[in-house]
Nucleic acid binder design. Structure first.
Lengths: 221, 221
DNA sequence: TATAGTTATATTCAATATGAATATAACTAT
DNA sequence: ATAGTTATATTCATATTGAATATAACTATA
């Protein structure tokens, strides 16, 4: 027999770096070790519900949409017993979701994916899997906007894509392409506090995107 | 506690129609009903291994590459007990893989996805999930070539895409796009037995694709 | 053997998109 | 008022795309 767990990869983006929220365990076989927030599945809940519940109890992060990533089932991925895990992922603004350790954690923190601590079990490879999937997904669905405030500049959007895709984009061409999609609404406001020319603020038009999607439009970047 | 099973969606393409291989159960709670080939996970195998094993025993289909699709965990998707299932999928040529019922099936057959029999459990929605995923995947990875013989015509390739995407493509433009990718090798042979002009035969160059992929090329259609 | 019909295949045209480069606008600091 | 920097727009050459047109090559028939 085996047990089933869920693990939730919560990605964020800050200062041009892709980050992931991790917890340091206070008990169990991985006491003291860092890992992806998650826990065992209850008998009376779906994997989706379990992902939501365990994320809240482990990190305090709540009320976000989790997408299923992959189910990992190596026989020896957990010491002493068989545990299969289904990983989920989401993108959030780290500024909106302070990582707070739950009752069974020593700590909860955001880490740059380029500076991860040593991780328990197969969590390193789960994170790598998630990063590859995210890089693909962000070019085919407008999930990147979840990482931005309601009003953002095109430079913020570009840096987001550069952080996740780990590439450098050409600013004028990126702007032209994004604006040409007609998914962004001009807020008629300018960014403030900048040292140079104030940038225009935009917001993502979910309704327009939904309408276009219903008509066969496919987001591609 | 719960049990875990695997279900394998084997898609094929014939006569311009997307097909899926199904089995008719001979025992268990679904006796007489059609469903996706699969079975319960053993304690000493991974989900991947289980998918391969159960596909072979249920349908005789062997030696194919299975990609993980999604894990379904609704509480009541199985009568009387909790069963979580991880679905896999693959694309094969139906002509190469005669569906043969195993020892625990009444029958095994290829069905057009547009003419499915009544299916057990949540297999209808699993298939629909798989179709949507396939439609996305086939445009971003050259998996469609698995459905073609080693040597094929561009019209065969086009009809494949039309069958899966359920759209109509423009032949001259499709040809130009496919040839421009430089992933097809001219076999220097013509199709035979046709009633009109014989079409050129091509084959997919896996090595070239691998090399291009290593250099950052992304297949997109 | 010549021809008609059909399909495979190529090419053309106008419109659109892309990558790189250049240009202009507008902000702050001095 | 001006310099410096960044945001933003525009230009240019090239590539791609969608639709349409054209040509090639095959079989069947007379």
């Amino acid at each position: 027999m085996h047990k089933h767990s869920v693990d939730s990869l919560i990605f964020g983006c800050r200062n041009g770096h892709l980050e992931v929220c991790l917890i340091q365990h206070a008990d169990g076989p991985a006491t003291g070790q860092w890992g992806i927030p998650g826990d065992f599945l209850y008998d009376n809940e779906s994997l989706e519900d379990a992902a939501v519940r365990t994320l809240r109890t482990r990190t305090g992060i709540d009320d976000i949409y989790l997408d299923q990533l992959h189910t990992f089932s190596a026989l020896d991925r957990y010491p002493g017993e068989r545990v299969i895990t289904t990983a989920y992922y989401s993108l959030v603004r780290p500024q909106d979701y302070e990582a707070v350790a739950g009752a069974h954690e020593l700590d909860a923190q955001w880490f740059s994916v380029k500076q991860l601590p040593e991780l328990m079990y197969d969590h390193q490879s789960i994170i790598e899997f998630g990063i590859q999937h995210l890089r693909h997904k962000i070019r085919h669905a407008p999930i990147g906007f979840n990482l931005l405030p309601d009003k953002f500049t095109l430079l913020e959007l570009q840096k987001l894509y550069e952080a996740i895709l780990d590439i450098e984009l050409n600013k004028p061409n990126f702007r032209r392409k994004m604006l040409r999609m007609d998914l962004l609404v001009d807020c008629q406001e300018k960014q403030t506090g900048g040292a140079h020319r104030a940038a225009q603020l935009y917001r993502f038009d979910h309704a327009t995107y939904q309408n276009l999607q219903d008509q066969g439009f496919v987001f591609e970047l």
